[in-house]
Design a protein around this nucleic acid. Structure first.
Length: 227
DNA sequence: AGCCAGGCTACCG
DNA sequence: CGGTAGCATGGC
């Protein structure tokens, strides 16, 4: 799957480093990307912020999830023990704009408890998957962007793009697609972080809505690398 | 007016 | 086991 390295190169040339995961700037209370800086999250607060964001953005636009995150930050509730001490009505009201707010409130609590139980250690993928509300994509997002582990994140855009480009059929399992990337890309968490972010960036332009892939510049640039 | 968004769980056969 | 309804608001 040399083609996956090629796609990475082309996407990087098109868009440049994306600086994921975006973090809240406490002064302006706005989300900020940090392209080229692979040191964050720099403390437990930012680490939990990534974790909370990965739950809030499930099947939801990032802008909606971001509003919910800001709401929590303003309430100084973007930390595990505060999430656990809020009552249902408060928590649900704060994250309502992110949709599925009852589920997500419950999921945030599950994650808060789990995070505290870690006492600073890094969770395994298997442990993360045992937390209610954490599926494969969320687990990989947390490991990749919070704990900086080289776990490739597969999302809907990834599947759609590879299917359109003829690299997969489209009905492959999450694990299968994840393996495809992990076998052909060097296991560098910085590369994995950028690659997934670039796919989302590209997907927002060409793989959202009804028609997928229309006008995708990748189709022309992949001509002579058909694996 | 609908369709979609950086998915997951529970339940169905 | 694989497949799918339900979850819910906000933006275009």
């Amino acid at each position: 799957m040399e083609v996956l390295s090629h796609i990475y190169k082309v996407l990087m040339e098109l868009y440049g480093p994306q600086g994921w995961w975006p973090l809240i700037d406490r002064d302006t209370m706005t989300l900020r990307y940090h392209p080229g800086d692979y040191t964050p999250p720099s403390d437990d607060g930012e680490l939990f912020e990534v974790i909370a964001g990965s739950i809030l953005t499930q099947n939801t636009s990032w802008d909606s999830a971001a509003s919910a995150l800001i709401n929590l930050a303003v309430m100084d509730a973007l930390k595990p023990h505060r999430i656990l001490s809020l009552d249902d009505a408060e928590l649900e009201a704060a994250i309502r704009c992110a949709g599925f707010y009852r589920q997500k409130a419950s999921y945030l609590r599950e994650m808060a408890g789990f995070f505290l139980s870690l006492e600073g250690s890094t969770p395994s993928r298997k442990e993360l998957l045992r937390v209610r509300g954490v599926g494969p994509e969320t687990a990989d997002s947390v490991l990749l962007y919070a704990y900086r582990k080289p776990e490739f994140v597969v999302d809907a855009y990834t599947r759609r793009m590879l299917a359109y480009l003829g690299i997969i059929a489209g009905d492959e399992s999450y694990h299968r697609i994840k393996e495809l990337f992990e076998k052909s890309i060097e296991p560098d968490f910085r590369v994995f972080q950028e690659y997934h972010a670039l796919i989302v960036r590209h997907g927002k332009s060409y793989y959202r809505g009804r028609v997928h892939g229309e006008g995708d510049p990748l189709t022309e640039k992949l001509g002579d690398s058909c694996d």
